[in-house]
Amino acid sequence: MKQLSSRLNERIGDNLLTLVATAGMLFLYIPVLVLIVFSFNDNRSLTLPLRGFTLKWYEKFLSNSDMLTAIGNSLYVATVATAVTIVIGTVAAFALDRVTFPGKTVFRRLILLPIALPGIITGISMLNMFKLMGINLSLETVILGHATGLVSIVVTQVYARLQRFNRRIEEASSDLGARPWQTFFYVTLPNIRLALIGSALLSFTVSFDEIPVTFFLTGRDNTLPMYIYSTLRRGITPEINAVGTVIVVLSLGLIILSVYLLRQSEKE
């Protein structure tokens, strides 16, 4: 009898858990669905019931030259910031993995700090420094800000990969007469390739969508999130849903690819 009731309890508990977990999943995805559905809805205001299918919000944003300029700016910032981050982050990961030097712990803490620190602090502190040095704000200062914030992502991933890396392969390469740079480019780099590509995709997406650092470091040019942010002052429009849908769908694609690559890299 007691066993029966305990089993019954477990069943109820399981069902309750399934219910709560499903609700959690719905909570995560309903807003994304709302964004997508309303980008195709033929109604200026974002209200139910739906009025019918239209592509006009997409046409509208594709003919909005300010928005297209902003997209171009964001692509430029994200591409350069990712390139810089990958180089600095990879070198830093090698330094942490292979070299002993004084102040290593402090260095590690400092470089990883932007993961947990709110972006506003990175943004404001760099704004202060640029002001002191008399450097005018531009897309390039945004790039420096993004690269600094994102290095932590690359360092974490590449360092994790290097820790699992079998150094014997490198020794073998050098025993066979390869020069250090040859070993690096032909042996080491191909082995950590997945971690590099994965964290590059992640950095790119985050930089493309970034707002707290950009807010303080951008000059007259707007990135796409900054452009959207400024139009939101004037209220919401289905056009934002249309461009938002494109961003969210592309970001989801890039991130899924990146997480997949990083997981594969974990298995290597």
Binding site: P31, L35, T205, I228, I236, G244, I247, V248, S251
Partner: peptide, 13 residues
């Protein structure tokens, strides 16, 4: 990692 801004924005709508 998907746009912080847009995820906050949908709640406004």
């Amino acid at each position: 990692w998907v746009s912080y801004l847009l995820r906050a924005y949908t709640w406004k709508t």
